[in-house]
Design a protein around this nucleic acid. Sequence first.
DNA 1: GGTAGGTTACCGACCGGTAGGTAGCACTGG
DNA 2: CCAGTGCTACCTACCGGTCGGTAACCTACC
Lengths: 224, 224
Amino acid sequence: MTQSGRRPDEGERYRAILETAARLICERGYEGTSMQEIAAACRMTKAGLYHHIQNKEQLLFAIMNYGMDVFEEQVLAHVQDVADPLERLRGCMRHNIHLVTRGCSKEVIIILHEHATLTGEPREFIDRRKKRYVRFLEEAFAEATRQGLIRPVDPTVAAFSFLGMILWVYKWFKPDGRLTDDQIADGMVDLLLPGLFAQASAPAPDSGVAPLRVVPRTATGDAS
Amino acid sequence: MTQSGRRPDEGERYRAILETAARLICERGYEGTSMQEIAAACRMTKAGLYHHIQNKEQLLFAIMNYGMDVFEEQVLAHVQDVADPLERLRGCMRHNIHLVTRGCSKEVIIILHEHATLTGEPREFIDRRKKRYVRFLEEAFAEATRQGLIRPVDPTVAAFSFLGMILWVYKWFKPDGRLTDDQIADGMVDLLLPGLFAQASAPAPDSGVAPLRVVPRTATGDAS
DNA sequence: GGTAGGTTACCGACCGGTAGGTAGCACTGG
DNA sequence: CCAGTGCTACCTACCGGTCGGTAACCTACC
């Protein structure tokens, strides 16, 4: 046992700081959280904290990037290779809602809430990462339309509606409320997707296949 | 009309302060805006400003209440007497999206963004006003279900999905983007409501309901 | 093995600046 | 006169950030 127990291994220590800071910023907002408080929560002095980070803005940037990593790992990675575009959307909805409701990643909530706090290049960098997800969703809707799985919709409006539904959840969800996150996810899938299936007379735009597979309605259960 | 020219008439002056403060707070966030800046924007000193308000928190509370007044006047008042629940929802969507996209009421945006900034009794008071709207939407969905206009859905999930779709808009909408607010409103109405029409049982329920023309695809909008 | 040199992680004290808020005086119109 | 309104001047507390210094460890070389 030379030094395995000791030595927090730099990167690990840094990530612990990010997570602690994220917890506070998530609770009190970026501008509402002082570096003093963050340092204290890390059981350090402010000067000690500044040994690890450059400044407050860069700290927020690092938190957001970490949050995007978590998102890509916990949502995108599970769905990006799914062939069926509708199944892809269903997976996104479920995993993304879980990411927001189970409070395991405060960083993600910060990305959602502090959408206009960063400026300049860091802001653009995060926006570019977000935009990739929007494009991914747009493409799923467009693909589903091309395959005649759903009636034609504007992919951009569809993508942002999709996002609004599931991300707004962070503003009202209470873990001890009457609705569980699974009920919300099922309810939202049931609300949006079945309504998009190419309806009776709607002719498939470019023929191809129009199997019109109706996905079983997952019981919405009691409203509770 | 005794002295309409001079004398800003108290209440009017106060409201001007609320609107100026709202503009700043909307741009920079509540914690990110100093009383100094607000006073300067009102062409006053800080002490002069404090003659009209009690403190910063009460100012935010007043702004939010004013925003709720505007909302009720510009959205609720137009729809609350509509008999058909689906028409009611359509009206909500259209008016509410306009309220968010046309930047005429910064107060409303502040209500959306600073959802957790207030605490204690003021927070609960605003939350109660918000909740009334949620109940109003839930009731519209429940009524539409009872009348067999739409297939059964969980009213709570439906109401919050509805809200998420239209309120999330404030985070990504750009007035000079490719999508106009009308296109977004039409697109979202088309996305959510037609898919709810009772497909299995009820016969075509659209008595007075328009065919709901699909919005033309407008290439891509811009993300946030 | 001992020690010199370098590095990492952290601290106490402090910087200039600004936060929210207030006391007291001066101007104004009625 | 006086109530309403706004000002100058000022308070204390705290902001983000930096300074010089140091305890503890790692490595290298003799």
